[in-house]
Lab assay of single mutants.
Amino acid sequence: KFGRVHERAEGPAKILAIGTATPFHWVDQSSYPDYYFRVTNSDHLVDLKEKFRRICNRTMISKRHMFLTEEILQKNPNLCSHNEPSFDVRQDILVSEIPKLGKEAVLMAIDEWAQPKSKITHLVFCTRSGVDMPGADYQLIKLLGLSPSVQRVMMYQQGCFAGGTMLRLAKDLAENNKGARVLVVCAESSAIGFRGPSEDHPDNLIAQALFGDGAAALIIGSDPKMGLERPIFEIVTTAQTFVPNGDCHLALHLREMGLTFHCTKDVPPTIAKNVESCLIKAFEPLGISDWNSIFWILHPGGNAIVDQVESTLGLEPNKLQATRNILREYGNLSSACVLFILDEIRKKSGREGLKTSGDGLDLGVLLSFGPGLTIETVVLR
């Protein structure tokens, strides 16, 4: 008597548009150690500064975009301390800036989509910054002038794996609601975790050397309108798992001094060791076991992770080039990073006149991972 209210779509979910945005301000990685130790009044920690310089040199990052300028840091000195309470200051900045950054990426996506924004039916927003109620999803709806009846899902504090999570959720929403057009937004800022150095917490140096700011937005829907919408990728399958006891290797915690970062040297080999089982589960039903026969979007948690995944799986050097390019130009953008790589690989395919948006290949994989050593596996066509 009370059956399904919403009719299912006929076809699989497809990515119809991609937009990205970054803050205008950026830092050069080669000179960042001098800048970082100067603005945090830590130049007296000579040995720690040299250690940080070595870490920065190993990241293979060229530059990173950041909202925090020297002027902002001078006005808010607690942000430059390692342990002073600064959460309220971070909140005041990020509750406002995260939706604005997301808006810039959304406008780029809508411009490519070339359809009225009134056709957006759902919003899925993800960030690890600016936790608030009502959330960044609500603020973004107002900034864009979208209908208050847009169906919203707000996900805070997920971390680097969440780019894949957003695709998984959007696929379910698009395929189970005929005519749905799902706006996916990942907006991230390193301002939540920026803090001064400490000899007692070397993990913090890794975070300060890796993370950048950026937002990515996608429009996802099934059954694209012929002649009006141009699909870029099809989302074939999605899956999530985590490595048992992985939280002892990688975890982040909200504290009075901001978001703290805990990471062990076992993260790269542990991820590399567990990736292939995810690939087998995803691609065995499709008859694929040659990992060089697919295109790759791999989250660059750090250069060591990229190198070890490449080595463990025997990947050809060009397979992870898009990942390395984004890491070099932006650093680790947390949940937004794989979506930047997705954009990079389709643009490169277009520039080179390849037959598909995925490096000329039919199928590919998007792998994202993060806290708890959670792994998201997304098969794309």
Rank of each mutant, 00 (worst) to 15 (best):
1 K>H: 00
1 K>L: 06
1 K>W: 04
2 F>C: 14
2 F>A: 04
5 V>T: 08
9 A>M: 06
11 G>W: 05
11 G>N: 01
14 K>L: 11
14 K>E: 04
14 K>P: 07
15 I>C: 11
15 I>S: 06
16 L>H: 03
18 I>W: 02
20 T>Q: 11
22 T>E: 06
23 P>E: 09
25 H>N: 06
26 W>S: 08
26 W>M: 13
30 S>R: 09
31 S>C: 15
32 Y>T: 03
33 P>T: 14
33 P>R: 08
34 D>S: 10
36 Y>D: 01
36 Y>S: 06
37 F>I: 14
37 F>C: 15
40 T>G: 08
45 L>C: 15
47 D>R: 08
49 K>I: 04
49 K>T: 00
49 K>R: 10
50 E>C: 05
53 R>L: 01
54 R>P: 09
55 I>S: 01
58 R>I: 07
58 R>C: 12
58 R>P: 01
60 M>A: 12
60 M>Q: 12
61 I>K: 15
61 I>H: 14
62 S>F: 01
63 K>V: 09
65 H>A: 13
65 H>V: 06
65 H>C: 11
65 H>I: 00
67 F>L: 13
69 T>S: 12
69 T>A: 07
69 T>R: 02
70 E>H: 01
70 E>S: 06
70 E>V: 08
72 I>E: 00
73 L>S: 12
74 Q>C: 00
74 Q>A: 05
76 N>K: 08
78 N>S: 00
79 L>S: 11
82 H>T: 14
82 H>W: 15
83 N>H: 11
85 P>W: 08
87 F>S: 12
88 D>A: 13
89 V>D: 14
89 V>S: 12
91 Q>P: 07
92 D>C: 04
92 D>G: 07
94 L>G: 12
94 L>C: 09
94 L>D: 02
94 L>S: 10
97 E>N: 01
100 K>W: 05
101 L>G: 06
104 E>A: 08
105 A>W: 01
106 V>W: 06
106 V>K: 02
108 M>A: 13
111 D>I: 04
112 E>F: 06
121 T>P: 02
121 T>G: 03
122 H>I: 02
122 H>A: 02
123 L>P: 02
124 V>F: 01
128 R>M: 01
129 S>Q: 03
130 G>P: 10
131 V>S: 03
131 V>E: 11
133 M>Q: 03
134 P>K: 04
135 G>L: 15
136 A>S: 10
137 D>L: 06
138 Y>V: 15
138 Y>D: 13
139 Q>M: 09
140 L>S: 04
143 L>T: 07
229 E>K: 08
231 P>Q: 14
231 P>I: 01
232 I>R: 01
233 F>P: 00
233 F>T: 15
233 F>G: 03
234 E>A: 03
236 V>T: 02
236 V>C: 07
237 T>G: 08
239 A>N: 00
241 T>Q: 02
242 F>G: 11
242 F>V: 13
242 F>K: 14
244 P>L: 04
245 N>Y: 08
245 N>F: 00
247 D>Q: 04
247 D>Y: 07
248 C>A: 11
248 C>G: 13
249 H>E: 09
250 L>Q: 15
251 A>M: 13
251 A>D: 10
251 A>L: 08
252 L>A: 15
253 H>N: 12
254 L>R: 14
255 R>P: 11
255 R>A: 15
255 R>S: 12
258 G>A: 05
258 G>E: 13
259 L>M: 11
261 F>M: 12
261 F>S: 15
262 H>S: 09
263 C>G: 11
264 T>V: 12
266 D>C: 10
267 V>I: 11
268 P>D: 00
270 T>S: 12
271 I>H: 04
271 I>A: 05
273 K>P: 15
273 K>N: 08
274 N>A: 12
276 E>D: 05
279 L>S: 04
280 I>H: 02
281 K>A: 01
281 K>H: 03
281 K>G: 10
282 A>L: 14
284 E>F: 00
285 P>C: 15
285 P>F: 06
286 L>P: 04
286 L>A: 08
286 L>E: 09
286 L>C: 05
287 G>S: 02
288 I>T: 09
288 I>N: 00
288 I>S: 04
289 S>D: 13
290 D>M: 14
290 D>A: 04
293 S>L: 06
293 S>K: 03
293 S>R: 08
294 I>Y: 09
295 F>I: 11
295 F>L: 09
295 F>Y: 12
298 L>H: 05
298 L>N: 11
299 H>C: 04
299 H>M: 04
300 P>A: 14
300 P>Q: 04
303 N>A: 14
303 N>T: 06
304 A>W: 03
305 I>T: 06
307 D>W: 03
307 D>N: 11
307 D>C: 09
307 D>A: 03
308 Q>T: 13
309 V>D: 05
310 E>C: 07
312 T>R: 09
313 L>I: 01
313 L>T: 06
313 L>Y: 03
314 G>Q: 07
315 L>G: 02
315 L>V: 06
316 E>S: 09
317 P>M: 00
317 P>E: 07
319 K>S: 00
320 L>C: 06
321 Q>W: 10
322 A>L: 08
323 T>K: 08
323 T>P: 05
324 R>K: 07
326 I>L: 00
326 I>Q: 00
326 I>N: 10
326 I>M: 15
328 R>F: 13
328 R>W: 05
330 Y>M: 00
331 G>L: 00
332 N>S: 14
333 L>N: 05
334 S>R: 13
335 S>V: 03
337 C>Q: 14
337 C>D: 05
338 V>T: 09
338 V>R: 12
340 F>W: 12
340 F>M: 14
340 F>S: 08
341 I>S: 07
343 D>I: 00
344 E>V: 05
345 I>G: 02
345 I>S: 05
346 R>M: 09
346 R>W: 01
347 K>E: 04
348 K>G: 08
349 S>I: 02
349 S>L: 10
351 R>K: 07
351 R>Q: 11
352 E>I: 02
352 E>K: 12
353 G>L: 03
353 G>W: 09
354 L>F: 05
355 K>Y: 03
355 K>W: 02
355 K>P: 06
356 T>P: 03
356 T>Q: 01
358 G>A: 09
358 G>Y: 09
358 G>S: 10
359 D>I: 01
361 L>Y: 02
361 L>A: 02
363 L>H: 15
364 G>T: 00
364 G>D: 01
365 V>E: 15
367 L>N: 15
368 S>Y: 12
368 S>Q: 11
369 F>V: 13
370 G>C: 13
371 P>C: 07
371 P>S: 10
372 G>N: 02
374 T>Y: 14
374 T>I: 02
375 I>C: 14
375 I>A: 14
375 I>K: 15
376 E>A: 00
377 T>S: 08
377 T>D: 15
377 T>R: 06
377 T>H: 13
379 V>Y: 05
380 L>K: 15
381 R>I: 00
381 R>P: 12
